[in-house]
């Protein structure tokens, strides 16, 4: 990766962090409702994997911790924030909320709230890709605890049997809400679990974005070349609680400190500084620029946007004026 790309990536990841932290504030101010799951600490996972893929062309799907995946695919952060504010200008027109960001134009196929729900949907997207003959792939990001759902096993089995072009990325942050992985899961190393389906897999440090990119390149190449599914496990950590209603009481301060010492943004920043490609002041300026953009453009847009009209409550339940509902005109 060249220096310009590294700097762009640093900006993207810092933007992601600031975006999520601003969501936190907006939630406390009650501008954002519902459940809010933040991605702070895990930035290198989505950024690294999608850096190795083709965001906007490959079909991406994930769970409820979805803002950053959408943005990395090309979603306009203004529309994502407007969605969190429940506004008509939001990416799902205010009908979805934080857990249901969609941007189909950029092939971000959504955030889903049922743990494990996207596993088969991703396999299905891969089935469609295969039928339609493109060289895109489907990429599914989910957490570690999701792997205890039946859909995980059902989908891996089908993906292998039908040799589907799907990459499953496990963002292993060691917890499913407040339950540590070793208390819920017989085999703690997730990449080992797919051996039962004869699917190749790897485990990688999910805090070092350069390592993630390297591992993801291998994974993406495998899937894109027609060799079938692949499973990539990334070891990571979320800084915030599972959602806003969670205080992290189940984690030790030592553990949290240990992980924050391996912050994906700081690690990349320090590498660039050490290589003489970035100064401390340069980084500060970048941060200020991002904070200004979020405040003056993104939050301002969300604040100023109108809410959906109540007389459009039923819109989007069914297709509008679908002729086949009326017998196809025959």
């Amino acid at each position: 990766m060249n220096v310009a790309d590294k700097k762009r990536l640093l900006r993207e990841m810092l933007f992601a962090r600031r975006f999520e932290e601003r969501c936190y504030e907006a939630y406390v101010e009650r501008k954002i409702g519902g459940f809010l799951h933040l991605y702070s600490g895990e930035e290198a996972c989505a950024h690294g994997v999608l850096e190795a893929a083709r965001p906007g062309q490959d079909w991406v799907i994930t769970g409820y911790r979805d803002h950053i995946h959408a943005i990395k695919c090309g979603a306009d952060p203004k529309k994502v924030m407007a969605e969190l504010y429940g506004k008509e200008t939001g990416s799902s027109k205010g009908r979805g909320g934080s857990m249901h960001i969609f941007d189909v134009e950029h092939r971000f196929m959504g955030g889903y709230a049922l743990v494990g729900g996207p596993f088969p949907l991703a396999a299905g997207m891969a089935k469609a890709i295969k039928m339609q003959g493109g060289d895109e792939i489907a990429i599914c990001f989910l957490g570690d605890a999701a792997n205890n759902q039946g859909t995980f096993h059902e989908s891996l089995n089908m993906a292998k049997v039908w040799n589907l072009p799907v990459l499953y990325v496990c963002e292993n942050n060691l917890y499913g809400i407040g339950t540590r992985i070793d208390r819920s899961t017989a085999v703690v190393d997730q990449y080992k679990r797919v051996a039962g389906y004869d699917i190749p897999s790897a485990q990688e440090d999910g805090q070092d974005v350069e390592k993630v990119i390297k591992a993801a390149k291998k994974a993406v190449d495998h899937v894109r070349s027609g060799k079938g599914p692949y499973f990539l496990e990334l070891m990571t950590y979320r800084y915030r609680g599972h959602s806003m209603s969670d205080s992290n009481a189940y984690r030790s301060k030592d553990e949290e400190r240990e992980w924050s010492g391996r912050d994906p943004i700081i690690m990349l920043r320090d590498r660039l500084i050490k290589a003489g490609e970035l100064t401390k002041q340069g980084y500060k300026a970048l941060d200020t620029e991002i904070l200004d953009e979020i405040e003056n453009e993104i939050i301002a847009f969300a604040e100023a946007s109108p809410e959906p009209r109540v007389d459009e409550l039923k819109k989007y339940t069914f297709a509008e004026n679908d002729p086949w509902v009326y017998g196809g005109g025959r």
């Binding site: 729900g117 089935k127 989908s155 089908m158």
Partner: peptide, 23 residues
């Protein structure tokens, strides 16, 4: 004409995912 494994939630979800892309 796809013979599926006995995975009702899995293959139904797979069909739904395929339908997102026009199948």
């Amino acid at each position: 004409v796809v013979d599926t494994p006995i995975s009702e939630n899995g293959y139904t979800g797979l069909g739904i995912g395929a339908s997102f892309l026009g199948v």
